[in-house]
């Protein structure tokens, strides 16, 4: 736990390091090209305002969600699901704000071990990657509802096709069940 905390702190420090680097670079560049100063400042300000008006609320929603539906609960619930009905639940649970895609890899492995179909697992991973509810609010804000709904609808359709394709590709040789 302490190790985990330390590495997290390291990660945050590294992020601030990146920011400092980029900020210094920006200051130098703007100093060298003063005629661009206004354009850069205006753009940064407008994006900053837009993010500031939405990000705290998104974070509150994330916090609420993680408090009442912790990831462990989602994982446990997913582990109990098998068969075709499981995929719908997998998609629903995958769209909850449960962290980045790599969090889902062990869950996917577990699902495969429990004889969930490759199609279902791929659909689940794709849903986990692309449909994250509070984050979608940011897509709505920046890219608009037409972009968002179309992208999500197409992703859902393509995800099923991807799942079927992978099932076909993987079943030509030994199935995953060997592990």
């Amino acid at each position: 736990m302490t190790d985990d905390g330390a590495s997290k702190r390291e990660k945050i420090l590294r992020s601030w390091g990146y920011f400092a680097l980029v900020a210094v670079f920006a200051v130098v560049v703007v100093f060298l090209f003063p005629d661009r100063q206004d354009a850069v400042a205006t753009t940064m300000w407008s994006y900053l305002v837009e993010l500031a008006s939405i990000l705290p609320a998104v974070m509150v929603l994330l916090g609420l969600f993680n408090e009442w539906v912790p990831t462990e609960m989602v994982v446990q619930y997913l582990g109990e699901q098998t068969g075709a009905t499981g995929v719908g639940i997998a998609v629903l649970l995958g769209s909850t704000p449960t962290g980045p895609l790599y969090v889902a890899f062990p869950i996917a492995a577990d699902l495969l071990e429990k004889d969930a179909s490759v199609t279902n697992v791929v659909v689940f991973l794709t849903a986990w990657a692309c449909l994250k509810l509070p984050q979608e609010l940011i897509e709505l804000q920046f890219l608009g509802w037409r972009f968002m709904t179309l992208r999500l609808a197409l992703t859902a359709a393509v995800a099923v096709g991807m799942g079927l394709a992978m099932q076909a590709l993987l079943s030509t040789e030994s199935p995953h069940g060997s592990s």
């Binding site: 945050i12 900020a23 940064m44 408090e67």
Partner: peptide, 30 residues
Amino acid sequence: DSIKRGLVSFVRILPTVLTIVVIIGLLLGF
């Protein structure tokens, strides 16, 4: 507790957000 959780993730993502804002500023400005 959930406000605290939200605050923690906000602090965690803040440097990344600020970095992207600066990059977008340079991108659109230059």
